[in-house]
Design a protein around this nucleic acid. Sequence first.
DNA 1: GCAAAAGTGTTAACGCTACACCCATGA
DNA 2: TCATGGGTGTAGCGTTAACACTTTTGC
Lengths: 238, 238
Amino acid sequence: MKKIINEESGKLVERSVINAITIDCVIFGFDNGVLEVLLVRHAEGIMKNQWGLPGGWITEKESTDDAARRLLADLTGLDNIYLEQLKAFGEPDRFPLGRVITIGYFALIKKENYDVKAGFTASEAKWYKIKDVPELIYDHNEILDYSIQHLRNRVRNAPVGFNLLPEKFTLLELMQLYEEILGVEMDKSNFRRKILRMKILVALDEKQKDVSHRAAKLYEFNQTVYNDLTKKGYNFEF
Amino acid sequence: MKKIINEESGKLVERSVINAITIDCVIFGFDNGVLEVLLVRHAEGIMKNQWGLPGGWITEKESTDDAARRLLADLTGLDNIYLEQLKAFGEPDRFPLGRVITIGYFALIKKENYDVKAGFTASEAKWYKIKDVPELIYDHNEILDYSIQHLRNRVRNAPVGFNLLPEKFTLLELMQLYEEILGVEMDKSNFRRKILRMKILVALDEKQKDVSHRAAKLYEFNQTVYNDLTKKGYNFEF
DNA sequence: GCAAAAGTGTTAACGCTACACCCATGA
DNA sequence: TCATGGGTGTAGCGTTAACACTTTTGC
């Protein structure tokens, strides 16, 4: 902690301010009907060998959004990801070695597009099923819990869930995604009608392959219709 | 900017990190059917005499939430306010004299309960109708715009709007609040039925006074029912 | 043919919209 | 008695929920 110049008055003011901000990313993936989160194991420091959310420092010239994108790109190896700021976590004792506020980010990725490899100060990176998440460093369990809650809310008010699925998916896969995230059971038939009426999906001339039952039609997401719907404040309640 | 010790490894690392965080509060009020925001005029510094959002520095021992509550109490003279973090604003050039990230907070107050008086480094505090807001310092117009958008979203998914009204209010006042915030016209009769079916209001044995027409019944908000509803993920779409 | 999942159809209950209408009160 | 807002009623329509049913495909 240090005394700093009050930027408002230009005068030196006797006031302690915090001097560090980090970014932590909650990266969700979806695999075989199960929601997963990407965690890393720390390679050094007092938290060595413990699991936490991937994160890092902000550099001087980048925005917090850019920092999150950079950290994510370094970590998952790809950009063009659905990314959204969660909020800042600022409990004074959240970080044991000093006052550090972290800005949480929230990403949804199509798992099969990315080959996750550990980088940074991480010795290992691994997808965990939500229910198998171990105890994490600092307040990272709290950040994760908040993210899950946030995901549940977002998914009901905007079609962000699509970002977790492959480009082409079946209606049942989509429904299972909602079921998993919201923790509810749905009726196949009703889900079908509802989502199709929204016109947010485009039916492809293509079907599932290598399945041991009737192959389902594949769909893709229609960005244009989504934009229209969100402007009108559409509601994805299921 | 300064070099800091990497808290992870304990080693001195050659990395520049930002060293200042502020809090800025967007405080909404509602007066005679019009949404307003509380602004302050700066008394000193390079932005002297210009209008901006009330805000300030975080001290070492308080959480960001506590800081926002403290700043708000100092400014509006009262606590026990509906307060919510918006998000962090972190563009590298948002603040002209250095890298400062601000955490936006969002408050809804019952205007008639508070006697706003300028404090801090503010020479004046004033309620502005949303459409009359002048050009503000730094990125405060952007923060305000974001807040309004956020308010619109929140109001449709949770009954936070009640925080803008007096303890006792009429159904028409409530409807006008929704109309103003969402920018839509509603049907009195349908609004009535819908909000009453929610059971979120308690009818009082009391009526409006001093009105030149039939006096309307007064209602108050039922916190218990609200808690139940939000758990179930209720939806306030109108 | 059987299992498993795709996909369609039906129906009753419910909620929403739009609008007409009556009520209470002060000026 | 008129204007103003308070408050009720209702018909029509679309959506939802629950469940039965048919179709396709691999084994």
